[in-house]
Amino acid sequence: DVEEQIRRLEEVLKKNQPVTWNGTTYTDPNEIKKVIEELRK
């Protein structure tokens, strides 16, 4: 469920934690926001 994935990513973003997505770890909040934007398409 895309909405659920977006919610999880936004939670991690608020906590300033790194996100691992498709084998890539993102630590930059701007990169995480880009992943969220991609999911919304």
Rank of each mutant, 00 (worst) to 15 (best):
Q17V: 12
K33C: 09
Y26E: 01
N30A: 13
E4K: 07
V12C: 15
N30T: 09
I32L: 05
T24F: 11
R40P: 00
K15W: 09
T25P: 02
I32S: 01
L13Q: 04
V2K: 05
P18Y: 06
E10S: 05
E3P: 06
N30K: 08
L9W: 02
R40W: 07
K15V: 06
L39E: 01
D1R: 12
K15E: 11
E31M: 09
V19E: 06
K34H: 09
L9K: 00
T25F: 12
P18D: 14
K34Y: 05
E37K: 06
E31K: 04
L9Y: 02
L13N: 02
E38N: 09
E4S: 11
K33I: 10
L9G: 01
W21I: 15
R8F: 15
W21E: 09
V35T: 02
L39D: 00
T27F: 09
D28E: 09
E11L: 05
T24N: 11
K15I: 06
E37F: 04
D1L: 10
V2R: 07
N30L: 12
E37N: 06
K14P: 03
E10K: 05
D1I: 07
I36D: 00
N30F: 12
R8G: 07
L9H: 00
G23W: 00
V2Y: 09
E11P: 01
I36P: 00
Y26H: 03
K33S: 06
E38M: 14
R8S: 09
K41R: 13
R7S: 07
E10C: 08
R40K: 11
Q5T: 13
D28H: 05
V2L: 14
V35Y: 04
T25K: 03
N22F: 14
T24C: 07
I36M: 06
T25N: 04
G23V: 00
W21M: 15
D1K: 11
I6M: 04
N30D: 15
E37W: 03
V12M: 15
R40Q: 07
E38A: 12
E4Q: 10
N16P: 05
T20W: 15
K14T: 11
G23E: 08
E10Q: 09
P29M: 14
N30H: 11
Q5F: 13
G23K: 01
E4T: 10
E4G: 08
L9E: 00
R8A: 14
D28C: 05
N16F: 13
E31L: 08
N30I: 13
E38S: 12
E3G: 12
T27V: 06
I6C: 04
D1V: 09
K34M: 12
E38R: 12
E37T: 07
E11M: 07
T20S: 15
G23A: 01
V35A: 05
E11G: 06
V19K: 01
Q17K: 08
D28L: 03
N16R: 10
V35R: 02
L13C: 05
L9N: 01
E31P: 01
T24L: 13
K14D: 13
K14M: 11
Q5H: 06
N16Y: 04
D28G: 04
T20F: 15
T24Y: 09
D28Q: 05
W21S: 12
K34N: 08
T27M: 06
Q17G: 11
I32M: 03
E3V: 12
V19G: 07
V35G: 00
T24M: 08
E10P: 00
E3A: 12
V12F: 14
R8K: 12
E3Y: 15
R40T: 04
V35F: 07
L13P: 01
G23S: 02
E3R: 12
E11A: 09
I32V: 07
G23Y: 01
E10V: 11
T25E: 10
L13E: 02
T24P: 01
I36R: 01
Q17D: 09
R8L: 14
V19S: 02
P29T: 07
W21T: 10
E3I: 12
K34L: 10
E11T: 05
T20N: 15
E38V: 07
K15T: 14
E10A: 04
R40H: 04
K15P: 02
E3L: 13
D28A: 03
V35W: 03
G23N: 04
E3D: 10
T25L: 14
E31H: 04
P29V: 10
P18H: 08
Q5V: 14
R40L: 09
E31W: 02
W21V: 15
K41Y: 06
L39N: 00
T20L: 13
T27W: 12
E11H: 06
E11Y: 02
I6W: 03
L39H: 02
E4I: 09
T27G: 03
E38F: 12
E4Y: 11
V12T: 09
E4P: 03
E37R: 05
L39K: 00
Q17P: 05
E3F: 14
E31F: 04
E4A: 13
K41G: 10
T20Y: 15
R7M: 10
V35P: 00
K33T: 08
G23I: 00
R8I: 14
E10G: 03
W21Y: 13
K41M: 11
V2I: 14
R40M: 08
D1F: 11
Q5W: 11
L13S: 05
N30S: 14
W21F: 15
V19F: 11
K15A: 13
V35M: 08
K33M: 14
I6P: 00
Q5K: 06
I36L: 14
I6A: 04
E31I: 06
W21L: 15
E4N: 13
V19D: 11
R7T: 09
V35H: 03
E10L: 12
K41T: 09
V2M: 08
I32T: 02
L9M: 10
R40F: 04
P18L: 08
